[in-house]
Amino acid sequence: MITIREYKKAATLEEAWELNQKRMNRVIGGMLWVKMTKGNVGTVIDLSGLGLDKIEETETEFRIGCMATLRQLEEHPGLAAYSGGAVKEAMRHIVGVQFRNLATVGGSVYGRFGFSDVISVLMVMDAYVEMYKGGIIPLAEFVNMPYDRDILVRIIIKKNKASFSYQTVRISKTDFPVLTCAAAVTDKDVRIAVGARPGKAMLLIDRQQLAGLPVTAAGAQAFAEYAAQVIPTGNTNRGSAQYRTHLIKVLAQRTVLEAGGKAGC
């Protein structure tokens, strides 16, 4: 656990951003990850007073405040309907309900961790990160950006005609995933995001239209095999690169087929 010299509940985003420019200071989301780190923090900046814990839904998009919890995401009926249950599936294996009542979307996305189910599922959606100073950035671009001292304000998901699916392989049900795979079948293309490779989620769009549209079983298989060839994997104590590559073949095929099935309904 870190030591903290001062706690500040920011009254405005500008105040939060100002404080965050100092090297000794840190923004905390749910603090679940930060709590496991060591070291001295000057001022810990709490964003929970800024009303950023809401999920707003309009005709065209979802606007998810950075302080919205993973549990809120999991339970939101609009997201459930739009994602066909994929968002809930991405959340429900993360440790436990009490954990998800604290973990924030902002913290999960800002962290850009390889194991993140949150990033994996958002990656196949038309998702954007809104940074306080940096503006609106596509998620696929954001995950490859280095950490900076900007503040993540909200996640935006633009609604499209699309069906989604999410599956993971885990050694035990509440563990980190060995591999994550999200799939989206839109009226234009098929795309997957593979995470916990162990690297960060990587978006792969089926530009060669291997999967077919509508998706066929053989097509899903073909796209999955292609994905396994081009998406790099690595070794960790939970699994080897070889195993992960094999899993890409399996999960990509299954999620693309499942999303394709939903699209067909």
């Binding site: 905390i28 709590k35 009490q98 009542n101 604290l102």
Partner: peptide, 23 residues
């Protein structure tokens, strides 16, 4: 120390949370 066990569950307002992970 890793927010895994749930032994420390309390209600914050009406929500169950991990008191070990909350300032």
């Amino acid at each position: 120390e890793t927010s895994n066990c749930g032994l420390c569950t309390v209600f914050l307002n009406d929500k169950p949370v991990l008191s070990c992970s909350l300032l």
